[in-house]
Write a protein that binds this DNA or RNA. Structure first.
Lengths: 198, 198
DNA sequence: TCGACAAGTCAACGCGCATTGACATGGGCC
DNA sequence: GGCCCATGTCAATGCGCGTTGACTTGTCGA
């Protein structure tokens, strides 16, 4: 984590004493750090350094590491929704997204990594279940808009999750003809589930 | 982890000095413990207690925690059954396996949990990647036995992982018509990837 | 039977961690 | 302008971890 910890924010506006801003900075740093390295391998010292803050503030503001984690999880689950996809390009868009590098810069990758970390803990797994329902299943279901939408949405979500995990494991991005073939294949698979573009 | 550590093996035959058996007991305990709580949250002391053994033996026999984990992974991802599968029933078999994956008593569930845990820790993800390539992708690739085998195997692996995650998140086992519909859908998806039965 | 060596035990070390409490200090309010 | 509480700093504490090395004990071949 030391590589992440160093620069913090080189020429940041010298934040003055502002508990709210400090809290927010810590929370943002926590979301990134937890997503990148997981709960156990992320130390409060890392987060504090990343936020340009002091370690001791974290137990004080969030009641401890676990408190910070749950709050970061809430902040991650809550806000944005699935963007509006063009249905005629849906499967190909999704396939290309999946083929993309394990790009840490992509906020979707970060979010997903974070959520998946949460899935392995019995205490946070229900949170993930709710997040998936809210962020994936419901929008896709509405979007499919037919009777079988529920179950097809679930299959689609599973495939989506599967490819993201696969990317997580491999680390490297797909390139060249391998990438092309991959996209073709995934497009076909998704079309098989949601139906080809009408 | 203390709840796991206590009983060890109540009325087990008093194992005498046998390095092979001790090694095996440690490995078995490690597979369970890693699957249940993940790499970071599992201590060697937990594993040793679970195996009714001593902590110091683990670095000695396995070269350290990572060595133990790698070996446990290898023991878990065994390609043994794959070659026995009847190709004409392949997709349906896999689909049914996925439908039953939430059953805690099923040893396959432990495998799933183990893999998911491994995927979400940055330390273990590369180890998992190597193990999956060697023990999962390569056999399936050979089994499919055509030029596109590599990429289809990867797609299949991703789908497999995705459904296991989905099952783990939801927790409850599938029942009745929901289960039937699930199996039908997954079978169709897999057929779409590996090709329908020839 | 007995000695040698493998197998198992035990205590200790160093390390990194989260957390604590005592201390310094800035800035809004009278 | 000066108090005083919210805000931030710092050093110290205790704990659990993986790992090490010196030790004891069982077992098997000569």
């Amino acid at each position: 984590m030391t590589d992440l910890a160093e620069p913090a924010r080189p020429a940041a506006p010298p934040r003055r004493r502002d508990a709210g801003a400090t809290r927010a900075a810590i929370l943002e740093a926590a979301r990134n750090a937890f997503a990148a390295t997981g709960y156990d391998r992320t130390s409060l010292r890392d987060i504090a350094a990343l936020a340009g803050s002091d370690v001791a503030l974290i137990p004080r503001y969030f009641g401890g590491k676990e408190g910070l984690f749950t709050e970061a999880l809430k902040a991650t689950i809550a806000p944005d929704r699935l963007r509006d996809w063009d249905r005629s390009r849906f499967s190909r868009d999704v396939a290309e997204m999946m083929a993309g590098a394990a790009d840490i810069a992509d906020p979707r990758t970060r979010t997903f990594q974070f959520l998946l970390q949460a899935a392995t803990s019995p205490t946070t797994a229900p949170l993930l279940g709710r997040a998936v329902e809210e962020r994936f299943l419901a929008p896709i279901r509405d979007w499919l808009g037919d009777a079988a939408g529920q179950e097809r949405a679930r299959v689609l979500a599973a495939i989506y999750i599967g490819f993201l995990v696969e990317r997580l494991i491999r680390g490297a991005a797909l390139e060249g003809p391998e990438r092309t073939a991959f996209i073709e294949r995934v497009t076909a698979v998704i079309d098989g589930v949601v139906g080809p573009q009408p």
